[in-house]
Simulated assay, not measured.
Amino acid sequence: MLRLAQENSTWGYRRIHGELLLGIKVAASTVWQILKDAGIDPAPNRTSTTWPDFLRSQADALLACDFFETRTVNGTRLYVLAVIEHTSRRIRILGSTAHLTASWVTQAARNLVMDLDDAGRHARFLIRDRDGKYPILFDAVLTDAGIQVVLTGVRIPRMNAIMERWIRSCRRELLDRTLIWNQPHLLYALREYERFYNTHRPHQGIDTARPLQTLPQPTTDQAAATRLDIRRRQRLGSILNEYHHAA
Rank of each mutant, 00 (worst) to 15 (best):
T106A: 13
H86I: 02
I230L: 15
W104N: 02
C170N: 02
T101K: 12
I93R: 01
M114P: 00
F125A: 02
P135Y: 07
L94N: 03
R90W: 04
L116H: 08
P42L: 15
H17V: 08
L240V: 08
F138P: 02
H122W: 09
R46M: 12
R121T: 11
V83S: 04
I127G: 00
W104F: 09
Q213K: 13
R14C: 09
V26I: 15
N198K: 06
L137S: 14
L78G: 03
P157E: 03
S169R: 12
L126H: 06
R227Q: 15
T30Y: 09
A246T: 11
L126V: 14
I84V: 13
L174S: 04
D60P: 01
V83W: 06
V113N: 05
V113I: 14
V150P: 01
A28G: 10
A225K: 12
G12F: 10
R110S: 09
D53H: 08
I136T: 11
A43W: 04
R110N: 08
Q204K: 08
Q222M: 12
G39P: 06
L175F: 06
A82P: 00
V83A: 11
Y13I: 06
R110C: 10
W32S: 04
R233S: 06
S96I: 04
V149C: 13
H86T: 02
N8Q: 11
S238K: 14
L190R: 03
R235Q: 08
Q183W: 02
L179Q: 13
S88G: 04
S169T: 15
W32P: 01
D117M: 13
G132I: 05
L94E: 02
D176M: 11
P52D: 04
K36I: 03
H244P: 00
L35N: 03
A247C: 07
H245I: 09
